[in-house]
Design a protein around this nucleic acid. Structure first.
Length: 542
RNA sequence: GCCCCCAUAGCUCAGUGGAUUAGAGCAAUGGCCUCCGGAGCCAUGUGCGUAGGUUCGAGUCCUACUGGGGGUACCA
């Protein structure tokens, strides 16, 4: 539909050259009686041409040479909108396209040949993934899916650090619990890791080694065992929600390959850093940021900024056209420094897209559960999956704009899963599968021969919505907004149910029945495609 | 103090500068199966935090304010 309009306006440019001067946009009007698509081009041109919008709209309309088998009518309305009404027989042709393209309906070639990296989760192995990581994990994976749908080749990468203070505390925490199990009286500091998993790791060490480890360094076997166990856990959790990371990038590699050292040297040579009070500072205030920041502490240990910049440089070196970083809002102060460092070294920072998602609030028994990895009172992603399943987890994390806080009512998700919109979508899909099984037994098959019979309001509404799917995918992908897909799917499922309530298949004239079955198939394809973007199953039966 | 995000119906949230009429789900009330899946459909809504500004046109953009969340380390 949209394509036809774009082409129509392009040919009209010959007779009305001023059409080239405006960005022509077609939108689906909120009001159904305002047509299938509308454009505000005459209002935009009114200012440039200093003429009345209605007058311009009239002129455009008389010059549009359209095919009346495709467009039923064109109207001018309100202050100068041009509304387009398509013929019902043209609308029905979308079914043919959907059924022919099937699992690739909605895909684009627009960015084919381009490489993208999505870096997400990137949690250090200090504990199991929490619900907050869950949002990051699901959104990151879905953004990656969306980019694949518009043509990108996408790598998913997990960046982590198994050195540093946090990990030392982790090793100490495990050793203390180990000593405790051996009967020693210990003082367990408040700022150590309190979770039960620490005790489990300590217990495992005791079982395997008895008391032989009492004189071992906490940074040795204790830290290593903890990291191994925790990472195994994280991997299992990711697998449960269908996340396949391509790479795990260990910050340590940057040191091994000398990238930290050479970057530090580069900053010095370029006069972008200086020494003060035994520390090395990056001249961020000269690069447009608020203040200079330390990149090497007086202890000689770099702060996260140096490896983060070095890490991003490897992304450029690996040839990505676009690099997505997905962080929780608690990290929103870190990326401006990294971007400034990259900019100073001449890298095109517009290739890095930083997405910040807001917190997840867990509600349980009407109360907010405060969460901290250190403290014992947090809900793990694994527990959440146990309670509600992978499909609900993935759908819920995808269904809200990442700029908003996500309110996750655990009680609701636990006990009343049939209230969840994900079931509404899966039900629509399963219902169609059932219809197809049943009609097949009646000797009816989908047919594209008489699609023009699909003329009722309910049928037409579904058809027009089918046309929108590729646009929704493109918009969602280019704006990294996974929730758009959810909104669309809920809309088309609702339109389908309405159609199905009003329009009978068995008992109708055979040609009409078979056209309606074809409509069902098309809706099913789109539901399945949309759900696959989200990583949610589309069941044949429920 | 400064920086980022948010404020829309009882609750959870959509809303891509457009149309005298701002939508959905949940909750609530009342309808709809002699009929293909009732996990469905239909009906019922005193709502855009406050005050200015830009614009032909503002929930959407700008400024200030109020309220909430997150930051502002030689933690990440």
């Amino acid at each position: 539909m949209k394509n036809y309009l774009f082409n129509l306006f392009k040919t009209t440019q010959i007779s009305l050259p001023y059409l080239k001067e405006a960005d022509i946009i077609f939108t689906v009007p909120v009001q159904k009686d305002h047509g299938d698509y509308a454009t505000n081009v005459s209002m935009i041109l009114a200012k440039k041409l200093k003429r009345k919008p209605l007058e311009i709209a009239n002129e455009i309309c008389t010059n549009l040479k359209y095919d009346d088998r495709i467009i039923e009518k064109i109207e001018i309305a309100g202050p100068g909108f041009i509304n387009f009404y398509f013929t019902s027989s043209f609308n029905s042709l979308i079914i043919k396209e959907v059924i022919e393209k099937k699992e690739i309906f909605g895909k684009w070639q627009k960015y084919s040949g381009k490489k993208a990296m999505v870096e997400f989760i990137s949690a250090n192995p200090t504990g199991p993934l929490t619900v907050g990581h869950g949002r990051n994990a699901v959104v990151g994976d879905t953004v990656a899916n969306l980019l694949e749908w518009i043509g990108y080749t996408v790598d998913r990468e997990y960046y982590f650090n198994n050195a540093g203070r946090q990990m030392r505390v982790l090793g100490d925490s495990v050793k203390l619990r180990y000593l405790e199990l051996l009967g020693e009286t210990i003082q367990f500091p408040d700022d150590y890791y309190q979770g039960a998993y620490i005790k489990e790791i300590a217990a495992k060490l005791k079982k395997e080694n008895g008391d032989r480890l009492v004189n071992e360094d906490a940074e040795g076997i204790f830290k290593q065992a903890a990291e191994k166990e925790i990472f195994a856990d994280i991997m299992t959790t990711m697998k449960r929600i269908q996340i396949n990371m391509k790479n795990f990038y260990n910050e340590h590699v940057l040191y091994e390959e000398g990238k930290i050292k050479s970057l530090l040297e580069l900053f010095k040579v370029k006069n972008l850093s200086y020494e003060k009070e035994n520390a090395v500072w990056l001249k961020l205030s000269e690069l447009g940021n608020e203040q200079d920041k330390v990149i090497v502490k007086s202890s000689g240990e770099p702060t996260y900024r140096l490896p983060d910049i070095a890490y991003h440089i490897t992304k450029y070196e690996r040839g990505y056209d676009i690099m997505i970083d997905l962080f929780g809002s608690d990290h929103n102060a870190t990326y401006p420094d990294v971007l400034a460092g990259l900019r100073a070294l001449g890298y095109d920072e517009s290739k890095v897209k930083v997405l910040i998602h807001q917190f997840v609030t867990i509600m349980e028994k009407g109360e907010v559960v405060k969460m901290s990895t250190r403290k014992a009172n947090y809900i793990t992603l694994d527990e959440l999956i146990d309670e509600v399943g992978s499909d609900v987890v993935r759908y819920f994390f995808n269904m809200r704009s990442i700029t908003s806080h996500l309110n996750f009512d655990l009680d609701l998700a636990k006990k009343q899963s049939d209230e969840n919109p994900v079931f509404y979508l899966q039900y629509a899909h399963a219902r169609i599968a059932s219809v197809l099984r049943m009609t097949k037994d009646e000797g009816l098959v989908p047919s594209l021969d008489d699609l023009n019979l699909l003329a009722t309001k309910e049928e037409q509404n579904v058809l027009k919505k089918l046309y929108e799917f590729p646009d929704v995918v493109l918009y969602a992908a280019e704006n990294y907004e996974t929730h758009r897909v959810c909104i669309y799917l809920e809309e088309i499922a609702a339109l389908f149910h309405r159609f199905y309530t009003e329009c009978r298949i068995i008992g109708s004239d055979k040609r009409l029945a078979q056209a309606r079955i074809a409509l069902c198939v098309a809706v099913q394809v789109v539901l399945r495609n949309g759900l696959s973007i989200l990583g949610v199953n589309a069941p044949e039966k429920m």
